[in-house]
Write a protein that binds this DNA or RNA. Structure first.
Lengths: 192, 192
DNA sequence: GCTATCTTTGACAGCAATGTCAAACATGAC
DNA sequence: GTCATGTTTGACATTGCTGTCAAAGATAGC
């Protein structure tokens, strides 16, 4: 097999993810990706076809990392503690960077959904997996605290709330305010 | 005063709002606005300066309309009924159109926040007013049902949840699913 | 009617991005 | 070392949009 790729794909996709995280799907151009990865535009076209494909690959890594982090955060002895830790993880994730870069999946849901069905599906898949993850963790924790609603519904509401927080963050709600909103939800679901 | 504007400003801004609602802030070009309003690009530049200014004016009308609708929807005899009606109004609002156009303020928060501080402030102002509206209505309703959290916090969580629903809608959650998420929240806050 | 004033119109130059391609290049297989 | 194969590179044509402007047009006040 001669004629071999000259750049490190893992490295390049990781850098590409940084660019997308920073600028969002729509605002990043192939030139941005070329600059960010150190790979020429033509090479990127040759290797991946275009922006959407690069995004989907980079987003795959994002998904894996986010779910792993969320899972770790949920590892707490009570439902309340697990959810507070989970929300704290979310808030820290999307207020990282200066200026804060926001939540990539939420930005993608809004920006890319209409113009890229594949990106839409990728985000939807992430949310579905996240809901399953939250539900599984909650149903595992037997701390005697029962919510006033079905646990599946509670998990979905939790996921939905992460999206709400991501939007609020974009209009200058502070991290502490976001955590407070989350705590309000957790208290409503599982008490104090 | 000679040299007078040839087009109906109210009509034009209303049409412009339709365009923004349909395509979102970022994706609408001045040409889109010219086509949508029937006013030439040059005239729009002359009258308003550019896209941001047109958006802000159109968004003002959106804000007024949305708050009026929300207020009407909240006019129910119990907290639970008021909130369910409110969320139903939200869901109907942003699943309108074919294909559904989503929630303009949420799309703007994500799309425009970084590139237009004024748009960001406009969205933030809308959310603040909405929170006040919800809080006021809830605190007025004396149906004997008390939430397990502070009412101000509850109102903010409600507003945040509308944002969450708006994001979920973008990745193909159906109207009924969105209403179900909302109901889960309402039940958590005020019981069945 | 005339005029001053503002608006409308179509055209223009500029910019940023896209997607493609031929030529130059690197490398594994033999 | 040669070759076949896929990659890299810089250039190119194209597109869509922006912002501006001079000339033409409309209208209120006189």
């Amino acid at each position: 097999m001669a004629g071999v790729r000259q750049f490190d794909e893992r490295e390049a996709l990781s850098r590409a993810l940084d660019v997308f995280t920073d600028r969002g799907f729509r605002a990043t151009s192939m030139l941005d990706l070329a600059t960010g990865t150190g790979v020429q535009r033509g090479s990127l076209y040759n290797a991946y076809g275009g922006k959407e494909e690069i995004f989907l690959r980079a987003f795959g890594e994002y998904t894996a990392g986010f779910l792993a982090g969320a899972s770790a955060a949920l590892d707490r002895p009570t439902k309340r503690a697990a959810l507070l830790s989970f929300f704290d993880y979310c808030v820290r994730t999307f207020t990282a960077g200066t200026p804060a870069h926001g939540c990539l999946s939420t930005r993608t849901a809004i920006e890319a959904a209409t113009e890229s069905p594949r990106a839409e599906s990728a985000v939807r898949a992430l949310l579905d997996e996240l809901e399953t993850l939250v539900y599984t963790k909650l149903s595992t924790l037997d701390d005697g605290v029962e919510p006033p609603v079905d646990l599946h519904a509670a998990a979905r509401l939790v996921v939905s709330t992460t999206r709400g927080l991501a939007v609020m963050e974009r209009v200058r709600y502070e991290p502490d305010e976001l955590r407070e909103i989350a705590e309000t939800l957790v208290t409503s679901l599982f008490g104090r």
